[in-house]
Design a protein around this nucleic acid. Sequence first.
DNA 1: GACAAAACGGAGACTGTCTCCGTATATTCG
DNA 2: CGAATATACGGAGACAGTCTCCGTTTTGTC
Lengths: 190, 190
Amino acid sequence: MSGIAAAGRPLRADARRNYDKILAAATEVFAEQGAHASLDHIADIAGVGPGTLYRHFPTRNDLIAAAIDTSWSDLAQRGSELDDAADPLTALRDWLLGLAQHSGIYGGLAECIAPAFAGETSPFRPTCDSSVAVTETLLARAQAAGLIRQDVKASDLVVIANSLAWATDHNGASTRDLPRLLDLMVMGLA
Amino acid sequence: MSGIAAAGRPLRADARRNYDKILAAATEVFAEQGAHASLDHIADIAGVGPGTLYRHFPTRNDLIAAAIDTSWSDLAQRGSELDDAADPLTALRDWLLGLAQHSGIYGGLAECIAPAFAGETSPFRPTCDSSVAVTETLLARAQAAGLIRQDVKASDLVVIANSLAWATDHNGASTRDLPRLLDLMVMGLA
DNA sequence: GACAAAACGGAGACTGTCTCCGTATATTCG
DNA sequence: CGAATATACGGAGACAGTCTCCGTTTTGTC
């Protein structure tokens, strides 16, 4: 992504090259083996030493965050465009479904993201914040239209979406159950 | 718990003693450190070698299942008594809340249990089955009273309860958010 | 008390995480 | 271009956790 060191100084050519190789390897391996894949193995695939991997991405979450950055930003982007949708309730529902499904791109991803939704500092923080912001907008519109109870909070919805994503990849439920579970929640049980 | 080897033969005195010591240590350590605590450490606390621990409890889940056995059975017991409750909807809601809260006794427990709800073989299977059975009964009553949609399945509710338990101990939500999240779901968003 | 069956326990193989630092590569500057 | 310096590399290895194997010890039985 950035290609820029934390300081602001541009990366040295070889460093930049390795950064990209690691990210490519990570994307592939995470997709295959889930977010818990061995980091040393990713370094192997990238053709670099473990030290190099950890220098660029000090924690697992740093690496995962970099790997999902574009797809997650895209999601938030599309979400913010749902503002203009005809039916506020459907818009909200579609957004939450997209959010939950996105956590399914790597097995175990929902678990990594969860703490960020809780407010802890994490590499997922920025994108998390924008997700909550989108949710807030869509929720406000649905509430204004009298379609959703006033006491529902955006953070509740985000947590629930992420929980259902978790349930999905822990086989507590299969992927195709996701929409039904979400609808159950949005539409209510009654 | 059992005190009986898989075969059916009674355990030798020393084996029996160690079984109990391990279980006591596990209960304590799991409560302190969560369900991911080191098993070798539990063996240490129990004053036995790792080999002994693994002989009695071949997998982590075997140990956890033994540790929560009584409390979980009690829960199912109390649940089945809710059949006589005045309001079927409240009864169902209370049961699901109890189920979700129970997974909170050890951090990370919801994760261990999840696969069992999905039907995979697991030491949690038996108790899981009885939980689902209780849920089915309570759900059927609420549906018969026209309080819950007909297409809702007991397994959905159990999965959702467990997911919320997970959300709780991953700080995606705090313990005191649990009832609200559950109500949101049971009562619906509208 | 002796024999066989049952159980113990801990050394150690293995996997994954993460760091340290001697070596190599890039960039800058004379 | 050829130092000099900053930057980055990589892999050996420390550490933690899981789990097993097998020589030794304990228990139950006759």
